[in-house]
Simulated scan of single mutants.
Amino acid sequence: MGVLFSGGCATGTEQARDEATGLARSRAKALPDKVNGMLSAPAAPSGDVELLAYLESELPTSPDFALFGKESDGGRVRLRVAIAAQGVGSGVAGGQVFERVRVCVEVTGTRGVNPRAEVHDTACDDQAIPGQGGIPTVPLD
C-alpha cells in the first residue's frame, strides 16, 4: 500500500492566483476612502445626474477597473465596479505563470461631510464590463 504525500508548496498557478486575488481585493477595499473623499469634497455637485458624472470622472479608467453600474437618489450613491488584477507565479523550467481574477463590488455612500462609504460584494455583469469576460470572480473577503 502506497502513501501519498502532499507537499505544502503552492503551484505556480496557485501562487499567481493568490497574488492576483490579493491585489484585486486590496484595490476594492480602498474604494470607500476614495469615494468618501469625492463625496465630501466641496466640488461634489448636489444634483443626482451631475454627482454621478463627477464621480465617474474622478474614478480610474482602465481595462482593470470598470464602473458597470451607477445610481444616485438624493445624494445617496451606489456604484458597481469590477476590478481585475494579474498575479505571477513560478512555472516549470524557470518560466512564469500568469493568472487574472476580478472582484465585483458595490460601493455606497452619501454626499456630504460624512459620506460613510461602504463596499460589499455584488454580482458581475459581463454584458456591462468590457474586456473582463471570462475572468474568474473572487469574493471581497
Rank of each mutant, 00 (worst) to 15 (best):
E50T: 04
L140I: 00
E19L: 12
R111N: 12
A30E: 11
E71N: 12
P139E: 10
A66T: 06
M1S: 13
R111L: 12
G91L: 04
V113L: 14
D126C: 02
E118Y: 12
A84P: 09
A93K: 09
V119D: 05
E58T: 06
D64L: 03
T21E: 14
R17I: 10
F98Q: 13
P60E: 02
V119N: 04
G22E: 10
E50R: 06
R80D: 06
F5D: 15
A28N: 05
G89Q: 03
Q127T: 08
L79T: 06
G94S: 03
V88S: 08
A123C: 03
L67G: 02
E56W: 03
P32R: 05
R116P: 08
T137V: 05
D126H: 01
P115W: 01
P45Q: 09
A93G: 08
L52H: 09
P32Q: 04
S46M: 10
V3R: 15
F68M: 05
I129E: 08
D18R: 15
A16S: 12
R102S: 11
S6M: 15
A30G: 10
R76L: 08
R17M: 13
K34V: 13
R25L: 10
Y54F: 05
R76P: 02
T137G: 06
F65I: 02
F5P: 15
A10T: 14
R76I: 07
S72I: 04
S26H: 12
A41Y: 01
F98W: 11
F5C: 15
A44M: 09
I83C: 07
V35K: 07
P32I: 09
V3M: 13
V119I: 07
Q96T: 05
D73C: 11
G95C: 01
T137W: 00
R27F: 07
V88K: 05
A82R: 00
P42I: 13
E56F: 01
A53I: 08
N36V: 09
A123F: 08
A44C: 10
A84T: 07
A41K: 03
A53H: 09
R17S: 13
A53Y: 04
S90G: 11
L55A: 06
A117W: 02
G69L: 06
A10G: 15
A24C: 08
R116K: 14
A117D: 03
P63S: 09
G131C: 07
A93Q: 10
R102M: 10
Q86M: 08
G75Q: 07
L55W: 02
E118R: 15
T61A: 14
Q86E: 12
G75V: 04
E99A: 10
R78Y: 04
G89M: 04
G69Y: 00
Q96W: 01
Q86W: 05
V107N: 11
E14Q: 14
G74Y: 03
K29P: 06
A24I: 02
G75I: 08
A117I: 03
C124Y: 03
T61F: 11
E56V: 03
V113E: 15
F65D: 00
E58I: 00
G112T: 09
R76H: 11
A85F: 02
G94M: 03
G95H: 03
S57C: 13
T122W: 02
E106N: 07
S26N: 13
S72G: 11
V113Q: 15
C9M: 15
R78M: 09
G22W: 10
G47I: 01
A82C: 00
E71K: 12
G94V: 01
G7H: 14
G112V: 06
C104Y: 02
P42K: 13
K70P: 13
L79G: 10
